[in-house]
């Protein structure tokens, strides 16, 4: 399951931000290593919403996210909240 989420997150970064696959490691920092800026985060939110069919628009937790791994955990949390 988490593998699938990871793959889908990687797809988002490849499709929406044109980031090379080899840069997409779980510990990669989305700002420092992958080069996103605060202006990109809102695009990331939209892309994740579309990919995972979840709503994150008002979720404060997105502010805490630094690495791809953080993102993966966050999506997992969201999915379990949705299905509970």
């Amino acid at each position: 399951m988490s593998n699938k989420i990871e793959l889908m997150i990687n797809e988002v970064f490849q499709e929406s931000f044109e980031i090379e696959k080899n840069q997409l490691k779980p510990e990669a920092n989305i700002f420092e290593d992958l080069g996103l800026d605060s202006l990109d985060v809102v695009d990331l939110v939209v892309a994740l919403q579309n990919k995972f069919k979840v709503e994150i628009r008002t979720d404060e937790r997105i502010k805490e996210i630094r690495t791809l791994k953080d993102l993966c955990i966050f999506i997992k949390e969201l999915q379990s909240e949705g299905s509970s």
């Binding site: 605060s38 202006l39 985060v41 809102v42 695009d43 939110v45 939209v46 919403q49 994150i56 628009r57 008002t58 997105i62």
Partner: peptide, 11 residues
């Protein structure tokens, strides 16, 4: 339709 917002940015 408002899709998302983050900080001062919105889509």
């Amino acid at each position: 339709s408002k899709q998302a917002k983050f900080g001062n940015f919105g889509i």
